[in-house]
C-alpha cells in the first residue's frame, strides 16, 4: 500500500482539466458569483434611472440589452438585481441545509425510536408540494425577505434531512465511527468529527441541487408577483415587469429569464461533474 502511494506521489499525475461541459458550468458559476458580489458596482446606470422616454427602447451601444418597460437600462438592472437573486437563494438554501443536515445526521446517529419518529415526520413534510406551500405561506404571511428565506428553508430542510440521514447511515456503520463511539465520544462529536468529513462530497452535491431549486422557486414567485417586492428587484420580477414587451417582440423579459436559466444550467453542470455518473443522480433525485 505504501509503495503504491509512494509511486503515485513520485510521478506527478498530468493535470487534467474538467470535462468541457463542467468547465462551462464553472465559468458560469464564477460569473454569477462575480455579478452577485460586484454587480451593483459594475452597473453603468442606477437601478431606477430612466434612460429613455419611451418604453422598451431598442438595444444599442448605450443599452446593450435594450431598455425595460419604463425605459431603464436592462443590463444595469440585471447587475443590480444579481445580488438579490443569488444572495437570497444562497441564504434560503443555507438555512434549510444547516437545519436539514443537523437533523439528518442526528437521527442517523441516535437511531431507534427517535429515528422512526423523525423519519415519519420527515415523510409527511416531504409530501407537501413545495411551490404551493411557498405560495400559501406568502399568501398568509405576506412577502418579505425573511419570510421568503424561512419558507424556502422549511421546504428544503426535510428533503436535505432525508438525504443527510441516508448518507450518514452508511458512514455511521463503519468501523472508525464505531471506534469513536467506543472511545466515548458524544453524539455531537461523532456527527461533526467522524460523519461530516466523509459526507462532504455527497452533501456538496445536495447543496448545489438545493441552490438551483431555490433560484427557480424564488424566481417563479417573483414572476407571479409574490416574491421580491418593489422597489427591490430580482431577475424573476424583471421578467414579470417586462412580460408586456414580449408581444412587441422586445427581449426585455427574455434577458433576465435567460440569465436565470443560464445560471441554473451552469450550477447543474458543475454538480453533474462533482456527482459523477453522467447526470444520473441529478435527474433522478432532483425534487421539484
Amino acid at each position: 500500500m505504501s509503495a503504491g502511494e509512494a509511486t503515485a506521489q513520485a510521478i506527478p499525475r498530468p493535470r487534467r482539466l474538467p470535462p468541457p461541459l463542467a468547465c462551462i458550468g464553472l465559468a458560469i458559476v464564477a460569473i454569477g458569483l462575480i455579478m452577485a458580489l460586484l454587480g451593483p458596482f459594475l452597473a453603468r446606470h442606477g437601478a431606477g434611472e430612466l434612460i429613455s422616454e419611451r418604453p422598451f427602447p431598442a438595444a444599442s451601444w448605450a443599452l446593450p440589452f435594450g431598455g425595460d418597460h419604463l425605459g431603464r437600462d436592462v443590463l444595469s438592472r440585471l447587475l443590480h438585481a444579481a445580488p438579490v437573486t443569488i444572495g437570497l437563494a444562497l441564504g434560503a438554501t443555507t438555512v434549510g441545509f444547516v437545519i436539514g443536515l443537523t437533523v439528518g445526521f442526528f437521527t442517523a446517529e441516535v437511531r431507534g425510536r427517535t429515528d422512526t419518529m423523525i423519519t415519519w415526520i420527515l415523510d409527511i413534510l416531504v409530501s407537501f408540494p413545495p411551490k404551493l406551500i411557498a405560495l400559501i405561506a406568502i399568501a398568509g404571511l405576506g412577502s418579505s425577505l425573511p419570510i421568503l428565506i424561512a419558507t424556502l428553508g422549511f421546504v428544503h430542510a426535510p428533503r436535505v434531512a432525508r438525504v443527510a440521514r441516508a448518507v450518514a447511515m452508511n458512514i455511521s456503520a463503519m468501523d472508525f465511527v464505531e471506534a469513536a463511539r467506543a472511545r466515548g465520544e458524544s453524539v455531537l462529536a461523532v456527527m461533526v468529527r467522524e460523519i461530516w468529513p466523509s459526507a462532504r462530497r455527497p452533501m456538496a452535491v445536495e447543496f448545489g441541487l438545493r441552490v438551483t431549486f431555490s433560484i427557480l422557486v424564488l424566481s417563479s414567485l417573483s414572476f407571479l408577483g409574490l416574491g421580491v417586492q418593489p422597489p427591490m428587484t430580482d431577475w424573476g420580477s424583471m421578467v414579470r415587469e417586462n412580460m408586456s414587451g414580449i408581444f412587441l417582440g422586445t427581449p426585455a423579459a427574455l434577458i433576465p429569464a435567460l440569465a436565470i436559466g443560464i445560471l441554473t444550467v451552469g450550477i447543474n453542470l458543475v454538480i453533474d461533474w462533482i456527482g459523477g455518473s453522467s447526470g444520473r443522480r441529478l435527474t433522478e433525485e432532483l425534487s421539484r
Binding site: M243, F247, I260, G279, T283
Partner: peptide, 27 residues
C-alpha cells in the same frame, strides 16, 4: 438526450414559455 435533459431540467418554466411565445406568437 442525457445532456439535453440536463439543460431542460434546469430551466425555469417562464423561460421556455417566453421563448415559445416569441417564436410562435410574435415572429
Amino acid at each position: 438526450i442525457s445532456v439535453v435533459s440536463l439543460f431542460l431540467i434546469s430551466l425555469p418554466e417562464f423561460l421556455v414559455g417566453i421563448i415559445l411565445v416569441l417564436l410562435f406568437a410574435v415572429y
